[in-house]
């Protein structure tokens, strides 16, 4: 790990300004992803701003019947919240499908959204990687790509976003609240929060330098049956090959987002309109632009079957 200076911020504006002031400075909250990357010198911040003293650890009702989840709410506490379990079960299920008990106790809501890809070439500092070192090339395109993206990627990067939680947030139409270095707040719809690589895979979110996530809000509950189904190489503690977050209503309509297939949670309202016609109708549309490699072409039929299983699970509930 490279040496860094450390400070504990007392207010959100102070934290945002401290990170904006020093090039390469980073916020640290749970630290479960950032410290892993710092040990490998994939991340080399010269300064860390600890945001753990800022509060942001409450889950509170919003005036319009939704929930406001503080950025520092730990994954365990979010998954276990009685309101989330009852009204946003897909979110509890997604959180519980990710990581280990120890990691969920430390990892935060904002940190989960901001975690970096687990592409093996991003992690191997001996290999070219456009995300880690812009302009060096993508080792994954012609490399070992079984785990990687089939849709939404670019020739410059085929990394996936690794989060389960973010897939549930996408299907729930969450919004991300932030404060910028100059103290102004804004709200970013989750659909626009993560960006596609195109020519700049090193840019992963809509956040500006120094912009701090303060909360994630959920709109009022939409009812329906909530399912999160994750397919992975082990029964527990592994990243998704494919995951499906689904909310299915009694009349067969609903919402679907996919994880493990793209650089961001993958959802298309037009594809969801085909839900009453079954899984294939949805995934044909949702994955229409897919460009898989020979290693990961299996994800296309796997996504269809995982959605079919999720829909069957919803019908049986």
């Amino acid at each position: 790990m490279r040496p860094f200076t450390y400070e504990r911020a007392a207010t959100p504006a102070e934290a945002a300004a401290a990170v904006a002031r020093q090039p390469g400075a980073k916020f640290i909250a749970g630290g479960t992803n950032l410290l892993d990357l710092m040990k490998l010198q994939i991340e080399t911040p010269p300064h860390l701003v600890d945001v753990n003293a800022l509060g942001f650890d409450a889950i509170a009702p919003t005036p319009d019947g939704g929930l406001r989840i503080g950025a520092l709410v730990r994954n365990t506490d979010l998954a276990a919240d009685a309101r989330v379990r009852r009204d946003y079960a897909v979110l509890s299920r997604a959180l519980l499908a990710g990581a280990s008990g120890q990691l969920r106790n430390k990892a935060t809501t904002a940190g989960n959204l901001l975690q970096r890809t687990r592409c093996p070439y991003f992690y191997d500092t001996n290999q070219p990687c456009n995300k880690r070192q812009p302009g060096t090339g993508c080792s994954a395109v012609a490399g070992f790509s079984r785990q990687l993206a089939v849709v939404g990627a670019s020739p410059t990067c085929i990394a996936t976003h690794p989060s389960d939680m973010a897939v549930a947030m996408r299907v729930l139409d969450a919004s991300v609240e932030t404060v910028r270095a100059d103290g102004r707040a804004r709200t970013i719809p989750i659909a626009d929060f993560h960006t596609l690589p195109e020519g700049h895979p090193e840019i992963e979110t809509a956040l500006e330098p120094g912009e701090l996530v303060t909360a994630v809000t959920l709109p009022k509950p939409v009812g329906g049956t909530h399912v999160y189904r994750k397919v992975r190489d082990r029964a527990s503690y592994a990243f998704a090959l494919v995951s499906v977050a689904a909310i299915v209503q009694r009349d067969g309509s609903g919402r679907v987002a996919l994880g493990g297939v793209a650089p961001k949670p993958w959802r298309d309202p037009a594809a969801e309109a085909a839900l009453p016609h079954g899984a294939k109708a949805v995934t044909d549309r949702l994955l229409a632009g897919a460009r898989p490699t020979a290693d990961n072409a299996f994800k296309l039929p796997l996504a269809e079957r995982t959605l079919a299983a999720a829909l069957a699970q919803a019908r049986a509930a």
Partner: peptide, 10 residues
Amino acid sequence: GRRINSCLTL
């Protein structure tokens, strides 16, 4: 009161 990985925290 919560178990954590002590290697991934400062």
